[in-house]
Design a binder for these strands. Structure first.
Lengths: 140, 140
DNA sequence: TCTTGCACCTCTAGTCACTAGAGGATGTAG
DNA sequence: CTACATCCTCTAGTGACTAGAGGTGCAAGA
């Protein structure tokens, strides 16, 4: 098998070079073999793992969740209930986050629409921030 | 005017005690006067400012944006165009974030629905993460 | 063969917005 | 006067990287 440098691994996986080293440091990625000159040498399986990690990070999974998902992937015969639970928990987080962002969006829109582009002392943006009572959304 | 301790300020503003000290350290909040025993003593105007900051943080404004908004609030005669611009920028960020979270939600739903609760090697959660090509949303 | 120049190495420190904890001083109620 | 909560300063830790210093490896052109 041909050797893959860290730079090549970065290009192919979409994970930056220092981030790959960081993942190795925290134990998400195994320590790869080294060249005579002490340079890291990766295999295809490492690229797959890096892609898995990148994708999971893009979906907002935390490193500890990814660590759990990876250990599941390493033991393909066991039940996938844990993986399902992790994904479900993340789904609930995402739904919650969307709801709260929608509320913020409404509030920001009111601020921006209310701004008469005059002086600060008549500005709705500043006013709403200064006086929480004016919020439409009181959940926060 | 009666003296307000940092703990009271925290209760009334909803900003935690160490966070108030932190805001003072980074210059968001003025250094308050001190009691004989060197304890911070706040006034109503400090509470207003803290509430402003808390509210802005809840709306997701970064500290630097809040610093700008506060300096606008301190000069109420100038044009509110900057405040408007800051709020608009934040609105665009929020809208973008909502769009991307909706895509993630769809992807997570597919993963969770596809999970047959069997073994990991048939688990759609793991499979989708491992093979990005299966994503419905290719933007990331 | 030499040299240029990029990619690689390790290590430390910085980012953001706090949060936690140590170790000690102050203030207040009983 | 004694508890005891609250306050003080200072340092270090969080998550997930990112930036930079200072040095080594390696492949290609002269």
């Amino acid at each position: 098998m041909k050797k893959i440098t860290i730079g090549e691994a970065a290009r192919k996986s979409g994970v930056k070079v220092p981030t790959i080293r960081y993942y190795e440091g925290i134990g998400l990625l195994r320590e790869p073999s080294r060249s005579d000159g002490n340079q890291r040498s990766y295999e295809q399986s490492d690229l797959n793992r890096l892609t898995f990690i990148r994708h999971a990070r893009e979906l907002g999974f935390e490193v500890e969740a990814i660590r759990a998902l990876l250990s599941l992937q390493d033991n393909p015969l066991q039940s996938c209930a844990s993986a399902d639970a992790i994904a479900k928990a993340r789904l609930i987080e995402v739904e919650q986050r969307i709801r709260s962002l929608m509320a913020l969006k409404a509030e920001l829109e009111m601020m921006v629409e209310g701004c008469g582009h005059g002086r600060v002392d008549q500005c709705r943006v500043i006013e709403v921030l200064a006086d929480h009572a004016q919020c439409t959304h009181h959940g926060h």
